[in-house]
């Protein structure tokens, strides 16, 4: 456990992302399914980009590749100057731990930890535990009364707020969000998204968010549209 916690990155820098000719396919029962077919994409430091497209257009897969959760069949994912697709399992785990913040549609939280521990969890893993910053996040997210609760005792909206807190508490250079408000009603979703955007702007993180909603995509700096695994 030592090695995770001791990997301290002192200087936070927003990430520059360059994706080159990225392809990914899966074996399915119906045969080979080409999910991404030669994606090229550049994100500047501090950019916030919305990834839009129909269901099955490859948004999630692209996000997973950038997060280092999975490896591409071919192409490069250069982030902060190195190609993470060349990293092994351990290297990619270290990259996720220290440089990436993830917000998914659901199951973002560690069910065995209460809200306070969840918020501190990633920050501690990344070696950037900062109680003052976490307190500020808790206050701005309005989850101060939930700190001793467990994830299963929270509503979906509350869970997503905690997930955002958990992500931003670690001050990641890159925040990746996959339909973060997909399970929420519109009002609640808008509020959560607004918070996420303003907080990630505050930390200077680069943000890549997958959404199928044009309306939400408009809130971000830029939009990239995917169709059948290609950027259009």
């Amino acid at each position: 456990m030592e090695r995770y916690i001791c990997a301290i990155v002192l200087i936070l820098a927003a990430m520059v992302i360059a994706l080159r000719n990225l392809s990914k396919s899966y074996e399915t029962a119906e045969g080979r399914l080409e999910v991404l077919r030669g994606i090229d994409l550049d994100l500047g430091a501090g950019d916030s980009v919305a990834l839009t497209g129909e269901s099955g257009s490859g948004k999630s897969t692209l996000l997973h590749l950038v997060a280092g959760l999975d490896r591409p069949d071919s192409g490069e994912i250069v982030i902060g100057g190195r190609d993470i697709s060349k990293l092994d399992d351990r290297g990619r785990a270290g990259y996720r731990r220290t440089e990436v913040g993830l917000v998914f549609q659901q199951f973002n939280l560690v069910p065995s930890l209460d809200v306070a521990a969840n918020i501190a969890f990633h920050a501690k893993l990344a070696g950037r535990h900062d109680p003052a910053w976490e307190n500020e996040l808790v206050e701005r997210l309005g989850i101060g009364t939930l700190l001793t609760r467990y994830p299963e005792q929270l509503s979906s909206g509350q869970q997503q707020r905690v997930a955002i807190g958990r992500t931003l508490a670690a001050r990641p250079g890159l925040v990746l969000a996959d339909e973060p408000t997909g399970n929420l009603d519109e009002a609640n979703g808008d509020a959560v998204l607004e918070l996420m955007l303003s907080l990630s702007k505050g930390t200077g993180s680069t943000l890549l968010m997958a959404t199928h909603s044009r309306r939400l995509a408009d809130w971000l700096d830029r939009q990239v549209h995917l169709r059948s695994g290609k950027i259009t």
């Binding site: 785990a93 990259y95 996720r96 990436v100 998914f104 199951f107 069910p111 990633h122």
Partner: peptide, 16 residues
Amino acid sequence: LPQLAPVWAMGITRRD
């Protein structure tokens, strides 16, 4: 899986 997946996503390898 739901208990382990978030931890894995946050950078702990499957082996660990």
